[in-house]
Write a protein that binds this DNA or RNA. Sequence first.
DNA 1: ACTGTGACTCTAA
DNA 2: TTTAGAGCCACAG
Length: 114
Amino acid sequence: MEKTFNEKVYDVVARIPSGRVATFGQIAQMIGRPRCARFVGYASNNKASWHLPWHRVVFKDGSLCCGFAAEQYRALRAEGVKFDKEKKVVMSDFQWNPERDGVPMDIRDFPLVF
DNA sequence: ACTGTGACTCTAA
DNA sequence: TTTAGAGCCACAG
C-alpha cells in the first residue's frame, strides 16, 4: 500500500536535521508534488504529526508564519539558526540540502518512499 | 456523504 | 512593486 501525501510529508519533516530549515515548497518537491506547498502546511495541523520538528519548516523567503513566529523563532535560535534584520532565516546558510548535509543518525533508517 | 478549513508558492496582470 | 488566481490533501463536524 502506497503512503498517503501526508505520510510522505511526515517522512521528510522527520529527517530535517537540527540547525537546518526546509521550506514548504522544498518538501512538496521532495515527495514529487512540486505544486502542493500549501498542503504541506495543512499537514502540520493534523494531530498525527504533532511530534515532528515543524519549527524547522519555513516560508521560501525565510520568514515565519505569523501565528507561530515567536515560538518558532526561539526554537530555531536555540539550534543555532541565524536570522537577518527582518527576522528571516538566512536561507543561503541554513536551508537543508540532503545531499550536502545528510540526515540525522537516529532517523537514517526510517522507511522512506523515494 | 458533503462541506469547510488550514504553517504555501508560482505565474501573470 | 503589488495583487489575484490556481494548484488540488486530509481531517473534523
